[in-house]
Amino acid sequence: MSVVNPVPAGNPAHAPSLAAAPGAPHEAHVEHGLPHAQQVRANRLGLWLFCFSELFLFGALFTSRFVLWGNTRPELSQVIGLIATAVLLLSSYFMYRAEMGAAHGDRKTFLRGALLAAALGTLFFIMVVVLEWNVFGLEANLFGIEIFGHLSTADGVYGGVFYAMTGMHALHVLSGVVFILIIWWNGRRGRFTPEDHWGVEATAIYWHFVDVVWVFFYPALYLMGTVAG
């Protein structure tokens, strides 16, 4: 963009930029968006600030667990917790593959990784909502292991904290899955290039962040303290 100063040199720093009247129609060719590289830098910083902000959300829930449960925890199915955690961590690996694929223009790796990450994320979500929360009130045994949880929302602070922590996290997992499906669908139509794949990068950062939160939530919910009552 070429800007020629209409004010003759020698004028003090005052009143240089009087060229356009307020509200005057702007010349169409003057692009006022940020340059792409600068915009991506801004986006990246913005996303990390968002993650930093979310840290306080999950941190407050995490702290509430210790205030309300102290050194105890409810009885939960260790098998479901372990498998769900493994599933979520594995999904982060495929998300990483997807991002690398997009960064190197390898669309096949990208699409496959994204789809697998979304599938594993959905599996995690189902394990929390259907198996652990047991919203449908089911009962079943598999190889002698009870696969449906029996902690209800009415079970005092144990129910409260468990549902709040898993619920808030599951909400983030669900939105992450939606984001992954969006980039997968757009990727299939060739929207991302190695130079311009901010959408993929952002989704990957978000997904890893949600994953790391669970790394702290899982021991706080399933492992720490002694089983109460």
């Binding site: 902000s53 941190g59 407050a60 509430s64 709040a164």
Partner: peptide, 28 residues
């Protein structure tokens, strides 16, 4: 974010019957 958690918990306790604050269910 932390007041967001406090408000979410209050709504959940009122509306969905989760327990965080009411001492009768062990809350604080």
């Amino acid at each position: 974010q932390t007041v967001g958690v406090a408000l979410t918990m209050s709504v959940a306790e009122r509306v969905m019957g989760l327990n965080f604050f009411d001492p009768s269910g062990g809350g604080n």
